[in-house]
Design a protein around this nucleic acid. Structure first.
Length: 423
RNA sequence: GGAGAGAUGGCUGAGUGGUCGAAAGCGCUCGACUCGAAAUCGAGUGACCCUUUACUGGGUCCCAGGGUUCGAAUCCCUGUCUCUCCGCCA
């Protein structure tokens, strides 16, 4: 969420930012309503002041055994008026806060300006796509051929966009989770978190999934909880409503979680394989930093995610998302895209973002530079390190052999206990 | 799931209708003492909103949301969470 005062005093900047994103919000109506709110607030606060002083006077008189009936009668009316105005104000504030919660973040100045994802900027490339002497198969054919992926039975047991991993497939999934967590906790300084996979409405609002994108999430009807779409939600909300000690920053957390996405509107896209599932596994990195350091931290975070791909020896590229492709809460995002031979293209496997104080303001996560200082909002960042299902897809495709077997990347061999997955 | 107890500032904890944003202690900050530290002494120490160029002034907040009242941390209702006991379970 943007700072209300900032929106009020810089309406042109906000409008410009919204235009860059191709996102329209009725800002003029919003500002007019905000003006009305402040006027009414001043009035009702004057009434409350009167009620407070007179009530105090009534108390004093009664203690002395004196009559105060006229004042009581007047205050009865004043209180009624206050009740009405408070109700009115509450309605106005609800409208304002809803609008404020649906305004996306302002893109950082370094973000390329364009409404089309065509204009995302490639920052760098690592590794070269492997040349195959045979026609590389898509990962679902490889996986089904090896008997390690079972989409059909998952469709029977649950529905479309679910999968069973079996045997070394299941082990590969688990190996990747452990490998990534070991790397980030052991080498990159992250503290491991194992979060709840369901969160409440406040948490979903804190990181920006609600109120605008409720249809994207799976909701548990009976308790109004949501299945998490990413560990970002529980881990960022860990410190919701808290004031952290400045010297504890930066805080780095790495968390494995299952992720659940309804993917409303994605029907027909990536219908086969592991790329787009309703449930997938992911290791997520989350950072809480000082405001002045967050862009350095974004570069480091991205490098941490890249390290995973480098160790797995998977070719990838880093792109910087343009303003129109940027996620709702993000000020700047790098996507990591891994090479998938059967697609003949790079596909997103990680997304690393700096949210600046946007989530921190929503979730009210602050810090003090020293024990006496005023609280300030932290900056939050997160990035996948990495999406496990897509990593499995990338390994199956990039390491496939002509005979249908799949070599196990060196760094995973200790976790897998084998060098090759074959029938 | 059943029964009971509780939720107060960074922490412990007092407060049962008015002068309570809230005693006391701890912690923290600054100062004094000291070569320095500890101990001791003194002063200070919540958040948010509105108003003002500023000094200031005002409002809200004692788990959350409703209600009673001229007036609520305090009384009533609902919810959430925590603890204890029982049941059930991994």
């Amino acid at each position: 969420m943007l700072d209300l005062k900032f929106v009020r005093t810089n309406p042109d900047k906000v409008k410009e930012a919204l235009n860059k994103r191709g996102s329209a919000v009725g800002l003029d109506d919003f500002l007019a309503l905000e003006e009305q709110r402040r006027q009414e607030l001043v009035q009702v606060e004057q009434l409350k002041n009167r009620r407070n002083t007179v009530s105090e006077e009534i108390g004093r008189l009664k203690k002395q055994g004196q009559e105060a009936e006229a004042m009581v009668i007047e205050m009865r009316q004043v209180s009624q008026k206050i009740r009405e105005m408070d109700e009115d104000l509450k309605e106005i504030e609800e409208k304002l806060s809803y609008t404020l919660l649906t305004i996306p973040n302002i893109p950082h100045e370094s973000v390329p300006e364009s409404l089309s994802e065509e204009n995302n900027v490639e920052i760098r490339k690592w590794g070269a796509p492997k040349e195959f002497t045979f026609n590389p198969l898509p990962h679902w054919d490889i996986g089904e051929g090896l008997g390690i992926l079972d989409f059909e039975r998952a469709a029977k047991v649950t529905g479309a966009r679910f999968v069973f991993y079996k045997g070394l497939g299941a082990r590969l999934e688990r190996a990747l989770i452990n490998f990534m967590l070991d790397l980030h906790t052991g080498k990159h300084g992250y503290t491991e978190i194992f979060p709840p996979f369901m969160v409440n409405r406040d948490s979903m609002t804190g990181t920006g999934q609600l109120p605008k994108f409720e249809e994207e999430a799976f909701r548990i009807d009976s308790v109004d909880y949501f299945l998490i779409p990413t560990a970002e939600v529980p881990v960022t909300n860990l410190y919701r409503g808290e004031i952290l000690e400045g010297e504890k920053l930066p805080i780095y957390h790495a968390a494995y979680s299952a992720c659940f996405r309804a993917e409303a509107g994605a029907a027909g896209r990536d219908t086969r394989g592991l790329i787009r599932q309703h449930q997938f596994n992911k290791v997520e990195m989350v950072k809480f930093t000082l405001p002045e350091n967050s862009y350095d931290e974004l570069e480091k975070l991205t490098a941490n995610a890249e390290k995973v791909l480098q160790l797995l020896e998977l070719p990838y590229r880093v792109i910087c998302l343009c303003t129109g492709d940027l996620g709702f809460s993000s000020a700047k995002t790098y996507d990591l895209e891994v090479w998938l031979p059967s697609y003949g293209t790079y596909r997103e496997i990680s997304s690393c973002s700096n949210f600046e104080d946007y989530q921190a303001r929503r979730a009210n996560i602050r810090f003090r530079r020293n024990p006496k200082a005023k609280p300030e909002f932290v900056h939050t960042l997160n990035g996948s390190g990495l999406a496990i299902g897509r990593t499995v897809a990338a390994i199956l495709e990039n390491y496939q052999q002509q005979d249908g077997s799949v070599l196990v990347p060196k760094v995973l061999q200790p976790y897998m206990g084998v060098e090759k997955i074959s029938k």
